[in-house]
Design a protein around this nucleic acid. Structure first.
Lengths: 210, 210
DNA sequence: ATCCGGGCGGGACAAATGTCATGGCCGACC
DNA sequence: GGTCGGCCATGACATTTGTCCCGCCCGGAT
């Protein structure tokens, strides 16, 4: 005989968020909803799939920027490994490219960390009932921005150039010639319409292309 | 006749945090503590002092990175304009320089956003009772790291060089000659022991010097 | 009175960065 | 089979960046 005293079946939620305080606060608040139960909390991206396999949540609430594995990549993995689990992305940045990638990864919803906490439980319920939860303005922005024009290699080089790495550093890190690296950087700078690698990185990040 | 049903006087808290969801969640949780009352919530640094003057909180819980005015600057202002209000800094980054500046600004405590939510209410009570709340390991790091070696101008130039601005941009923005800008950048790079402006910025940020 | 240290700028030079043209290699697509 | 695009690489070149000189003006400390 189940020890659950509630009549309605409660919604099982997996919570992935690296900031301990926010994770704890959200878990407590969600746990107070009568029909919601937080069955797992993780602080790293590479723990998401394991936790989902173990606890079989109905909804996974995923941050994007996580140590280990991105929440977007985790969403894609969940799609195949735990297909019954619906994914709700919860992120600081409403970048067009993030939303696009979230949708391509099969996410059912996309929330930004601004906006009131009250939205959260509501979004979880709507997502579970089959709705897709996305801010319309953000969706429009994502559509009008168009897809990522950068090739995989150009993204690699931009990512590797973060933190002030020199061309030589990047070349060594990616096992490329220095000339090749400069060519990729140059073309990324061209495609982003910027003047140097820093601006190109900024722009690519802003768009959610990295 | 006061409508407050509790016997004990409750602790009046001002909450300054730009991320809406975290702000809302913390406000709800703190409000559930029997002896704590959130009397004001703000999402911008330049609203802190006004709100404190209006609502006369016992404790101000301040994020550092805020739009408008830094939580550290706001703490310094509170020190003079609302001296009875104790300041508890709540930040994502446990940078040594942040802790140092927080203490110099008269903060009574310094919490990082990792670590459990449960610490928060406890820290508020301890701060109010006169204790200073600081993670000992972080305090040691701040002490051993030494003070900021950069001059005010060097900081300005580093800040202005964020986002990929060229020397010409920085010079124009700060009304300086390009030679001067390059000299400041060079000396900042030297003092940080780095190889270029990007690394210098990274390091200076890491240390909390900006 | 002298000596810092900081703010500001100039000039010269080496190194890093960004651009461009060119070419080979591959796989996908028509 | 031909074409196109991505990946990788060279070499030459202009521009930017970083370094090291030098100098001037100030205000505060000794």
């Amino acid at each position: 005989m189940p020890r659950d005293h509630r009549r309605a079946k409660s919604i099982r939620v997996l919570l992935a968020e690296d900031q301990g305080m926010l994770r704890g606060a959200l878990a407590l608040l969600l746990g107070m909803e009568a029909d919601i139960e937080v069955v797992a909390q993780v602080g790293a991206g590479d723990a998401i799939v394991d936790a989902a396999l173990t606890h079989r949540p109905d909804v996974a609430l995923l941050d994007i920027e996580l140590p280990g594995m991105s929440g977007l990549d985790a969403a894609a993995e969940l799609r195949t490994q735990v297909p019954d689990c619906r994914v709700l992305i919860l992120t600081t940045f409403g970048r067009p490219g993030y939303l696009r990638r979230a949708m391509e990864a099969g996410a059912a919803g996309f929330l930004v960390k601004d906006g009131p906490v009250e939205d959260l439980a509501a979004a979880i319920r709507r997502v579970l009932s089959g709705e897709t939860v996305v801010d319309p303005a953000l969706a429009a922005a994502a559509l009008s921005a168009g897809p990522n024009p950068l090739t995989a290699r150009e993204c690699d080089v931009l990512k590797a150039s973060a933190g002030g790495a020199t061309v030589a550093d990047i070349a060594a890190g990616l096992h490329l010639s220095e000339s090749t690296v400069r060519n990729y950087l140059s073309s990324a700078i061209g495609k982003t319409g910027t003047r140097n690698r820093m601006e190109a990185m900024r722009e690519a990040r802003q768009q959610g292309w990295l």
